[in-house]
Amino acid sequence: MSDTTLEIKDLSVEVEGRQILHDINLTIKTGETHVLFGPNGNGKTTLLMTIMGSPKYRITKGNIILKGTDITNLPMDERARMGIGMSMQRPPVVRGVKTRDMVTACARGRESDDELNSIFLSTNLNELVDRDINYGFSGGEIKRSELAQLLAQKPDLVLLDEPESGVDLVNIALIGHLINQLLQKKHPIRERMRSGLIITHTGHILDYVDARTGYVMLAGTIICEGDPHEILKTIVKKGYEECRKCIA
């Protein structure tokens, strides 16, 4: 068993003929959580969608390795079944498909009704289970529903795209708690099997979720890597302008 969950080597990605990501390198050891900072429109979502395997994101160079297996050319559903799960920034509405159906589908028959119900309870989704997925959901409801799906899916690598955006202060603590549950944070790191990569635009999520490494992405390139709290402090104090100086 590999102690590295995710390894990205020299990854370049194109979307609709335009190169968005340039030579990305990144390694996440099993049990670790990393965070990705960066202003809007700089390629953070692109990186997560590429790891997940969305066909719109075309890999022009490099490799993605999950638990020792090269998955660069695997389709999205196979990656999901191999243990990658993603919470989307803006998931689509699927009319007629209920929240309960989605969460049940994620479990792929592994979870009992009791377990599924306890997921609905802990994500405070009971009032939404019989509604069409994402239809008329508030920002916070979308995030809780995404996390419920991941709790049922139990992925080894958890990709979260701005899990705190659009979430009010009351709900953000719940979101943080759910992420910790998903990433097995109450276990000591050596016993944790789950790893995470979290995009955060504001960094608020770090008040609730511990992370080992932080990155800053600018113009499709990772320009800095370090202690996430230190990076956040710099961004809060001086803005991304300070980061831009690093590449100047």
Binding site: M52, S54, P55, P75, M76, D77, A80, R81, G85, M86, M88, P91, P92, V94, R95, G96, V97, K98, D101, M102, A105, C106, R108, D132, Q149, Q153
Partner: peptide, 22 residues
């Protein structure tokens, strides 16, 4: 794609959406 992201095959995802539609 949203359903495939959750591990459903393309056929399963399509069937689920059609079922929802009906």
């Amino acid at each position: 794609e949203y359903l495939m992201m959750r591990g459903l095959t393309r056929d399963e995802a399509t069937a689920t959406i059609v079922r929802g539609f009906l």
